[in-house]
């Protein structure tokens, strides 16, 4: 469960949004729609603990994590530009979270193999991530984020910048992967079709917060 209450954040000396409140039930997939620059990514970064809000609180599975460091929040995030570690291969990227949580080598290999199978990248374990195509990199990023089984999954415009054919194919894959994992998910996008395809429920940023006019 993710509960965000009365969040307020500022950017460049002005309020980006105020009084933002959002509740996502366990296992629910919610898409948040809003125009570019309205603060969608900032909201995800606040939920993840990468940025601090001016006011408000973030609760995950009944635990107030507002002042909890990002590495112990149990939040996973797929970044718009993937942020794959360029010095590690595909397997080491996907297994990074498992290594942090001190899983045995054997366990880690099993999780990595499962995740690569889930995203349709069997046989990619040893690949250099800098040689992946846009779609492959996005799948690795999704697998890496899902591997440690985060309590909440955040997706920041996950399909931006892909060509139409790849976008549609990946959209279907993301939908089926998320359905299979039943992870509590918040996806932000400016594309209503993408939101409707992936999510159980679509909300508009302007409906859950006072949004500043840009």
């Amino acid at each position: 469960m993710l509960h965000v209450e009365s969040l307020r954040t500022r950017h460049d000396g002005r309020d980006l949004f105020t009084n933002l409140t959002l509740h996502i039930a366990t296992g629910e997939r919610v898409a948040l729609l809003g125009p570019s620059g309205s603060g969608k990514t900032t909201l995800l970064r606040i939920i993840a603990g990468l940025e601090a809000a001016e006011a408000g609180r973030v609760v995950i599975n009944e635990r107030d994590v507002t002042n909890v460091a990002p590495h112990v929040r149990g939040v996973g995030m797929v970044f718009q530009d993937n942020q794959l570690f360029p010095h590690l291969d595909v397997a080491a990227n996907v297994g990074y979270g498992e290594a942090v949580h001190r899983l045995s080598r054997h366990e880690r290999d099993r999780v990595v193999a499962d995740m690569l199978e889930l995203v349709g990248l069997q046989g990619f374990a040893g690949r250099d991530v800098t040689t992946l195509s846009g779609g492959e990199a996005k799948r690795v990023a999704l697998a890496r984020t899902l591997a440690p089984r985060p309590a909440v999954l955040l997706l920041d415009e996950p399909l931006t910048g892909l060509d139409v054919a790849l976008h549609d194919r990946l959209l279907a894959d993301v939908r089926s992967v998320l359905a299979a994992r039943r992870t509590t998910t918040l996806l932000v996008t400016h594309d209503p079709a993408e939101a409707a395809a992936v999510a159980d429920r679509v909300v508009l940023l302007a409906d859950i917060a006072n949004v500043a006019r840009s």
Partner: peptide
């Protein structure tokens, strides 16, 4: 070095020292 890389490591559970050791220093 993109700050997003250490952010990604943090969200995968890496504490500051581990982020330094496994992401920043190798890069």
């Amino acid at each position: 070095i993109d700050t997003g890389l250490t952010d990604a490591a943090a969200l995968l559970g890496a504490a500051p020292l581990r982020r330094l050791r496994t992401v920043t220093l190798p890069l």
